[in-house]
């Protein structure tokens, strides 16, 4: 078990390095492909007013002429030890962990990310709780009453839920529940939990529901399929032969087994969401990582985009790691070989 954990941890670290190198290369190459030169990149830091000589000097000081692997090495070093950005007039210090320095807002990226993580985390956790509760129970009931009216209604509804995009359901939700009925908060009213838990929940209620709607639909279908399979297994027959009440047969034996593959998908979904629920945050103007990414892209703020991308990758890798470890807890055949 210990070696299993160590192996997984090691793999996760290696994976993060590979992802960071790949991401960095993309952000290094793409601007050059569309015609940017070290000088144009440097111009962003010092402003258009600077003379070509200054620009050239700054580009040199920022290391824009260096080969890619050197620049990558410096970027990684910044994460661990911090970095200094010499802009000629001033030298900006970006303390560790330095995930880049925005030349547009003239701020390090990391504090921004730290500010936004709680928003995205709040959104993701709340929605996940909702979609797990609804998805699993609707899916289970559907499987048990396969072919019934309830099953067909649930599956039709969930097909709609899967296929309707967030920006559609989100807009409709805002229109009806916030503006017409006034039951939920309008967009852009996010408040920190520490400031006011009730305002926090009020602002997030509709985003949670809208996000959960889509995932519940998907999880209901997954759960239904999984339950249909496990409820036909021999060990279910054994559980019945023991005289277990049908509820225990379903939950302790059926659902328990059906949950394992769902756990994997949940880990991935949740990890992806932590990297930024882009559409939801955009529709509801929630200042999370997703909205941060969209804003950074709109402003062509490459260091920010790179930072938030790394953050997202980090969450996905960590979520996968946790799923792998949970798998071992859940499935003794993994744990004990």
């Amino acid at each position: 078990m210990i070696t299993y954990i160590i192996r997984r941890l090691f793999a996760a670290v290696v994976l993060l390095f590979i992802i960071s190198a790949a991401t960095f290369s993309i952000f290094y190459l793409v601007p050059r492909l569309v015609g940017s030169t070290p000088e144009t990149l440097a111009t962003r830091y010092v402003g258009r007013a600077a003379t070509p000589e200054t620009v050239h000097l700054i580009a040199e000081k920022l290391g824009f002429y260096d080969p890619i692997w050197l620049q990558y090495g410096r970027w990684v070093k910044g994460i661990f030890f911090g970095a200094d950005y010499d802009l000629g007039a001033t030298v900006e210090h970006c303390p560790a962990p330095c995930f880049g320095y925005s030349f547009i807002t003239k701020t390090p990226v990391w504090p921004d990310l730290v500010d936004r993580i709680p928003v995205t985390l709040s959104l993701a956790i709340g929605a996940a709780i909702l979609w797990l509760i609804f998805g699993l129970s609707i899916g289970t009931l559907s499987a048990l009453r396969r072919g019934s009216f309830l099953d067909r209604a649930a599956m039709t509804f969930s097909l709609a839920g899967v296929s309707l995009p967030i920006f559609f359901t989100g807009m409709i939700g805002l229109l009806v529940f916030s503006y017409k009925l006034g039951w939920t908060a309008p967009g852009g009213s996010y408040t920190d939990f520490t400031e006011s838990p009730s305002a926090w929940a009020y602002a997030l209620l509709l985003p949670w529901i809208v996000l959960a709607l889509q995932f519940s639909a998907q999880y209901a279908r997954l759960t239904r399929a999984g339950m249909l399979e496990t409820m036909g297994e021999d060990y279910i027959r054994t559980a019945r032969a023991k005289g277990l009440p049908e509820r225990d047969v379903t939950v302790k034996h059926g659902l328990r087994a059906a949950l394992t593959p769902i756990l994997t998908i949940f880990g991935l979904d949740f990890g992806l969401l932590l990297g930024g629920a882009v559409l939801t945050e955009q529709v509801f103007s929630l200042p999370g990582l997703g909205k941060y990414a969209v804003d950074a892209i709109t402003n062509n703020d490459l260091p920010k985009v790179l930072g938030v991308t790394m953050m997202a990758a980090f969450f996905v890798v960590i979520a996968n790691l946790i799923v792998d470890l949970l798998y071992a807890v859940v499935d003794p055949r993994v744990r004990l070989g």
Partner: peptide
């Protein structure tokens, strides 16, 4: 009570 044919599939893999 009943005993089944294939004892591996007849027991739940996740419980001792």
């Amino acid at each position: 009570a009943m005993i089944f044919q294939d004892p591996l599939s007849a027991m739940h893999p996740y419980y001792t």
